[in-house]
């Protein structure tokens, strides 16, 4: 049986509606690391769907202090994106779409391929700035396909209204030019499990 996943922020857990969303059977909960105290592990609540922790770095210098678990980071400039992709500790680059000039180019795709990074598209970015986000995403996807870099499409929701359903995410990925075989692979939780190993 396929295990579908989504990534949400820890604030989302307060709404406690995860059990009603039957299409997702594995949730990755993002824990933001802004200061040193955030590194002290806090356990996730034990509710029915499987919850897994994901560290979201605001400051890249904390990357070396996280021993186990997947690490996500978001780059706002081209330099930050290059630093994230070059870092051995960071597994996932979140949201390669910029509100200004593009921050992800062919060189980034090549480095991501060498470092076996995953590029995570934030679905809410397509709501915030649809024209720019779709244009940039189509360009980035072409590069990722060329260099065989894994990509995922996640909600990064902090509330129920920002959550995007699995079927909508899949159809959106298809509209962005991804083939059925790729879609089946990138929405399966196995893509993140492989990364952990």
């Amino acid at each position: 049986m396929k295990k579908y996943f989504d990534i949400v922020f820890d604030g989302f857990l307060k709404e406690q509606q995860l059990d009603k969303i039957s299409s997702i059977n594995c949730w990755y909960v993002v824990k933001s690391i802004k200061k040193k105290e955030d590194l002290i592990s806090s356990n996730l609540p034990s509710i029915k769907p499987e919850l897994k922790k994901l560290y979201f770095l605001e400051d890249l210098s904390f990357a070396t202090q996280i021993k186990n678990g997947l690490i996500v980071a978001r780059g706002r400039t081209a330099d930050e994106v290059s630093r994230i992709l070059a870092s051995k500790q960071i597994d996932i680059l979140a949201n390669p779409i910029s509100s200004d000039k593009p921050i992800f180019d062919e060189e980034c795709a090549r480095v991501a391929s060498e470092g076996k990074k995953i590029i995570a598209f934030d679905m809410n970015e397509f709501r915030r700035q649809p024209y720019k986000a779709i244009k940039q995403a189509k360009f980035i996807i072409t590069l990722l396909k060329k260099h065989r870099v894994d990509m995922i499409f996640c909600s990064f929701a902090d509330g129920l209204s920002k959550l995007v359903d699995l079927q909508i995410r899949k159809s959106f990925a298809k509209e962005l030019g991804l083939e059925e075989s790729i879609i089946e692979r990138i929405f399966d939780e196995g893509i993140l499990c492989q990364k952990k190993e």
């Binding site: 969303i21 299409s23 679905m123 397509f126 709501r127 649809p130 129920l160 209204s161 959550l163 995007v164 359903d165 079927q167 909508i168 899949k170 159809s171 959106f172 298809k174 509209e175």
Partner: peptide, 15 residues
Amino acid sequence: LSSLLFLSTDLGYIL
């Protein structure tokens, strides 16, 4: 289905 992404702000989460 992909167009529903833009509607969600009006109707909340669409399943």
